[in-house]
Design a protein around this nucleic acid. Structure first.
Lengths: 235, 235
DNA sequence: CCTCGTATAATTGTATACAATCATACGAGG
DNA sequence: CCTCGTATGATTGTATACAATTATACGAGG
């Protein structure tokens, strides 16, 4: 295994900067801040007990993620995430996950396919037992495998970003046991298409999988997640 | 006009950090560095006459853009961009530009449509005169208008990123006069579909527009752009 | 000769000091 | 009373100093 194979989180969680980054990101996604609220470097630093340096670096990253907007020499302002944003992300993801499944069909390795089968099998077990935490974990992993299997650094990168973006929302969704089982069945169908080398089928199924996830979320998850978040009223 | 309407480049170009960011980004995209080459904060800083602080901040952003990989306490390593990456981006963009055109059909304002008409008209003029620089500029702007018109912060953000990513490649491509004219004709068709409220048509045409742009690039532009870039040999 | 541990150097991570810029308040002038 | 300019404070931008971590070299021990 070459050193290039080392998988690295985009931002490490154990540096001060990493902690600031993840904290702020979670807080913003959770709606702790108002839209357009100003984030001051010293204030955030004091709250987390760190200096301005790691805070500033975290700000730069959050800006690229689109969560805050930095106006030079002025300040950092929260962009927030609205219900419409989530919907848009799912629409975008539905296209990209489809493309990902298509490419995965063409490039998946034997090892990845085996892990996928194990994943689906395990998820079926946990679904029957109602182990929601494990199901969420396996669901994450299933998509990760797809991302890795598509053999496209660019697409993998994009999807991972989006995935993280809606992770919180999605986890809530899967807490719905019925959807958890249905979701896994869709995973299985996608896997079967990939196994059969049916790229068109895999693309369509992955696309549908995202639509279903969103539709279900609209019915059960979205409201809870964004309660106490005033941005919801604006969509 | 509310303060929220202020359009701001994602990273300002006039701070030291901004300059470092854009310089490194250009250098990486131009293939100045080997893949996996290590970037040292002090070295880069000395070359540009700045301290480590702005360099570090630029590094964090480049990491999120996927151009370098930072291993904590170790170093920053160039990821590079291969010919396959460019191809993947065009495939991804072809989907997203399609979606963008669809949404733009539903949300475009009168002012945006007017600017778009002016854009196409002007481009036709410059194409007849062979003013390549202006054509490239107008082509940029046409897509920018589409991004703004789609009324989706998320999609706009994504497409802007990709657009910037392949800007260098695309500019070279448009230097081909024939393609410049053909590209503008495609713009016009997309605009007509949007004007007619034909979302399906707009989506299909925008999709095709990207495919054509890529195909043409494969024939004329890509090689020139990546000559002297060893990453090309890996694809 | 090889292996392992320690010392040393190089590099990144963080904190702080200082410079530049922007926002606000206040007062002079009309 | 209003307007504009200036002074002051607050905040960001950058440089530097110091701490922590990692890589390398070298020598002791087997």
């Amino acid at each position: 295994m070459s050193s290039y194979d080392v998988k690295q989180e985009v931002t490490d969680k154990y540096s001060l900067r990493g902690r600031v980054f993840h904290k702020l990101r979670d807080d913003i996604l959770n709606g702790k801040y108002e839209e357009h609220e100003e984030l001051k470097e010293v204030t955030i630093g004091e709250e987390l007990g760190v200096s301005r340096t790691p805070v500033r670096e975290a700000f730069r990253q959050l800006e690229l993620e689109g969560l805050i907007q930095i106006i030079p020499n002025k300040g950092a302002y929260v962009t927030g995430i609205t219900e419409k944003d989530v919907k848009d992300i799912y629409m975008i993801r539905s296209l990209l996950e489809g493309l990902c499944a298509r490419w995965a069909t063409e490039h998946i390795t034997k090892e990845q396919l085996e892990e996928m089968e194990e994943n689906v099998y395990l998820a079926k077990f946990h679904a029957s037992k109602g182990h929601m935490e494990q199901i969420a974990e396996l669901d994450n992993r299933f998509h990760e495998i797809l991302y890795e299997a598509c053999n496209s650094k660019m697409l993998e990168h994009q999807l991972r970003d989006f995935h993280a973006y809606v992770l919180r929302v999605r986890r809530k969704t899967l807490a719905n046991q019925v959807r958890g089982a249905a979701s896994n069945e869709e995973h299985e169908k996608i896997m079967e298409a990939i196994k059969a080398g049916d790229a068109d089928g895999a693309e369509k199924l992955a696309h549908l999988h995202m639509i279903n996830a969103y539709e279900n979320m609209g019915k059960t998850g979205l409201h809870e997640v964004y309660e106490n978040n005033r941005t919801i009223s604006e969509t």
